[in-house]
């Protein structure tokens, strides 16, 4: 295997892992709780910008930069995203599914507009340059840094995965599923559905914020362009393709969808002559749309599908 391919592979998988964390967050909200969060890009953006503001050294044209260490940035990004999710959740969590979707979508649009218009804080449309990467100076080559970061991401994903599996198998996780399946029954059993849904919403969104912070400290640049609604669509595709209600599925979905997404452009450019690139692009999107519709019609459970067991003891009955 050529060196270049390894180097590219590490980079590619790093992006998959970051997107995988977002997908895990959505899977908690949607797959396990039934919350239709259509504002993923918004929480991702809050994490990304909070981290950028905390870690980038002060600069004359920006008001809030702090230049604090990477770890503080990550913690801050998670804390701020959690807070934002809690406030947004308080206002919206009671809404019926599709209303919640439109509301959260609207919030994500608003957040993106703030990153675009609040220039003194976010750098506006110019973007935010020079975001420090952790321990970057210690590595001699970009490849060495990427490898280190990849290992770091692997560890974070493993931790997140383990943590999610644990809480989902705990009594808390079972209540969550009960709330999703039959809210009335869950309420009758004395569980406050709203508060469980809110907790799940906040935890899931915090993971999205974490992923945003990990993304910007990997790339070193952030702009409002990174948080267009297409990001939300991609993450949803990952969870649906992988099979919602299954954390392995979410990660596998992240890999599959990102692989197809990144390579479909290559395929089109190889297959369609440049003169017809515009039509080629249209056909590409039509195929994506058709795939989505056909998958829903003929394979509604995704690649893996939901895990049937709720607790470890369920299959022992």
């Amino acid at each position: 295997m050529s060196m270049g391919l390894v180097s590219y592979g590490v980079f590619f998988l790093s992006v998959v892992l970051i997107l995988g964390i977002v997908a895990l967050g959505l899977n908690l909200q949607w797959g396990y709780t039934g919350l239709f969060n259509a504002g993923i890009a918004g929480f991702y953006a809050i994490g990304a910008y909070t981290h950028s503001i905390i870690t980038t050294p002060p600069r004359a044209d920006l008001i809030a930069n702090m230049g604090l260490p990477w770890v503080v940035g990550i913690a801050g990004a998670m804390a701020v995203t959690a807070l934002a999710a809690w406030i947004i959740g308080l206002a919206t969590i009671r809404l019926r599914g599709d209303y919640l979707a439109i509301s959260t979508f609207g919030i994500a649009v608003t957040i993106q507009l703030v990153t675009l218009n609040f220039e003194a804080l976010t750098g506006g449309s110019q973007g935010f340059t020079g975001i420090p990467r952790p321990l970057y100076g210690m590595f001699g080559s970009p490849f060495a840094f990427n490898l280190f970061y990849f290992a770091l991401l692997l560890a974070v994903v493993a931790l997140v995965y383990w943590g999610l599996e644990r809480i989902l198998r705990s009594p808390w996780g079972r209540v969550l599923k009960a709330v999703r399946e039959d809210e009335t029954a869950a309420i009758a059993l004395g569980k406050s559905a709203i508060s469980f849904r809110l907790q799940s919403f906040v935890i899931g969104s915090t993971l999205m914020g974490l992923a945003g912070a990990l993304y910007v400290s990997f790339i070193g640049f952030v702009s409002p362009f990174d948080f267009l609604p297409i990001v939300t669509f991609q993450i949803w595709a990952m969870v649906i393709v992988g099979g919602s209600g299954n954390n392995k599925g979410a990660l596998l979905g992240a890999l599959t969808v990102w692989l197809i997404w990144a390579s479909s452009g290559v395929a089109i450019t190889k297959l369609v002559p440049p003169a017809h690139a515009a039509q080629g692009g249209a056909i590409q999107v039509i195929l994506i749309g058709l795939m989505l519709v056909l998958a829903l019609l003929f394979r509604p459970r995704g690649l893996i599908g939901e895990e049937t067991m709720v607790s470890r003891h369920a299959d022992e009955r």
């Binding site: 669509f233 999107v285 994506i288 749309g289 989505l292 519709v293």
Partner: peptide
Amino acid sequence: MVFAAFGVALV
């Protein structure tokens, strides 16, 4: 249905 609508819209 909502996701299917998304796909239909793209097409």
